[in-house]
Design a binder for these strands. Structure first.
Length: 394
RNA sequence: CCAGGGAUGGCGGAGUGGUCAAUCGCAACAGACUGUAAAUCUGUCGCCUCACGGCUACGAAGGUUCGAAUCCUUCUCCCUGGA
């Protein structure tokens, strides 16, 4: 169970394609997980999930917990059954929420960039201390205030919840740091995340044949911390790895982080770059040896009327709409249903749920096709050409 | 025909003598979004100008006033009751 085989290695980069065996079938890599935080893909009618080309999905332990879904999932016989999705599925540990509902919230930072500017919630700007963090992080775990009530997530609880949820791949409970944190804080956090990892591994021992536990490399933008973290995790007997945390303020930062850490991880294990990416980042990640990704972009931007096409990102606007089918390639959901740019724009205008449905189906199709092309290109030794082709418009 | 009510920028709908080119919502337009606090958020949104500023505007025409989307008169149209 959970064996990973590399099928093709790109001769000109660290890109590789492979297969990861799981209880819900083989996961061909590289692949991008579609995010279904609360055991549902936002915008999609659950009835459509089986006919979707999704081969990898990720849900979220924290959100499933606070929404009262863990018990329901357990009662249904697991998350695959619960969400009517029978392929490979992961759950995030809730570690990202330690950041996104805590420091990230008060300082309007995301895991990329330097805070503010792109964040939608007004923040207080730069802060060096962690004192005003609404999430209280201690050695034991992290305490959130949710609906006025405290909720404490510990490594043991996160793992137990993830057992009950039943995804194929689960992530260790970690703290995701941001670029606003100091190196001192990042180092402390990193050490704590390492101690948490040992607790996660211990809590998971009895389930290791049923679910794959991936530790998450942290260390922010600091080379020595990243290397320390990667080395610490590489020494663990685990079926795969996550790369998480602050990936810096620029693309170069993210590339450097990958170049520092990936060579330190066992080559014969899949590496999942958490929360990334857009088209460009997927190519840059694959080129540096990333096998798995997950990102809200395909689904979120679809709801925000951005569609991904072979010609680049395009916003759905009635003023630019044509009577062309959105994507006429084989397997395209908009081709199958005959959805034109104009039709989709009219649905958005009327707040018709089909707008979200087809925009989301389309973006999922686009990213799924792109990942397929990446795998094929790696097999044929043409990854560099494919990357170049995509990056002229992305 | 009588009695009421109403006509505001693409639409809905505030405003009821000056601080009104006119709150707000929708639509439109230009964007943002990277382990989902996100069907969200930011900006523009009468015309001319980079801007200062100018011009035309609140059904129509007159009038009162230093000043009117706001008050008065007449007209046009719409809605609700009653004949």
């Amino acid at each position: 169970m959970f064996s990973f085989s590399i099928l093709h290695q790109d001769p000109r980069s660290r890109a590789r394609s492979g297969v990861f065996e799981t209880p819900h079938g083989i996961l061909e890599t590289p692949e991008l997980a579609i995010v279904g935080t609360n055991a549902a893909f936002r915008g999609l009618n659950p009835d459509n999930i089986p006919s979707t080309p999704i081969r990898y999905a990720i849900a979220n332990t924290f959100h499933l917990l606070v929404n009262g879904n863990v018990d329901k999932i357990e009662a249904t016989g697991g998350i695959h059954e619960f969400m009517n999705y029978r392929r490979v599925l992961a759950t995030d540990s809730g570690g990202f929420q330690v950041f996104s509902l805590g420091f990230g919230k008060t300082h309007s930072v995301n895991k990329l960039g330097g805070g503010n500017g792109t964040a939608i919630f007004p923040g207080t700007g730069r802060a060096e201390s962690n004192d005003d963090n609404p999430v209280n992080i201690t050695e034991e775990g992290a305490t959130f205030t949710y609906d006025g009530k405290p909720i404490t997530l510990t490594p043991e609880l996160s793992i137990d919840l993830q057992h009950r949820i039943g995804a194929d791949i689960i992530f260790a409970f970690d703290e995701c740091t941001s670029s606003l944190n100091t190196k001192e804080y990042t180092a402390q956090s990193l050490e704590r995340t390492h101690r948490w990892l040992d607790r996660c591994i211990a809590a998971h021992e009895a389930h290791r044949n049923r679910q794959a536990l991936f530790p998450v490399v942290q260390g922010g933008v600091y080379r020595d911390l990243r290397e320390r973290s990667a080395a610490f995790m590489a020494a663990k007997d685990v079926p795969g790895y996550g790369i998480g945390g602050s990936l810096g303020k620029t693309k170069e930062d993210m590339h450097a982080i990958l170049e520092w850490t990936l060579p330190l991880l066992p080559d014969n294990r899949p590496r999942h770059l958490l929360g990334i990416g857009n088209v460009r980042d997927v190519f840059e990640g694959v080129e540096r040896g990333i096998d798995l990704f997950d990102c809200v972009i395909p689904t979120r931007e679809a709801r925000h009327r951005v569609l991904y096409t072979v010609g680049g990102r395009k916003q759905v606007r009635i003023g630019r709409a044509t009577d062309e089918i959105i994507d006429s390639r084989p397997g395209s959901p908009t081709a199958k249903a005959g959805v034109t740019w104009r039709q989709l724009a009219l649905w958005f205008q009327a707040h018709d749920p089909r707008a979200h449905e087809y925009a989301t189906l389309h973006n999922i199709f686009f990213f799924t096709e792109m990942m397929k092309e990446i795998r094929t290109a790696i097999a044929h030794g043409t990854f560099a050409e494919l990357k170049k082709r995509y990056l002229t418009v992305y």
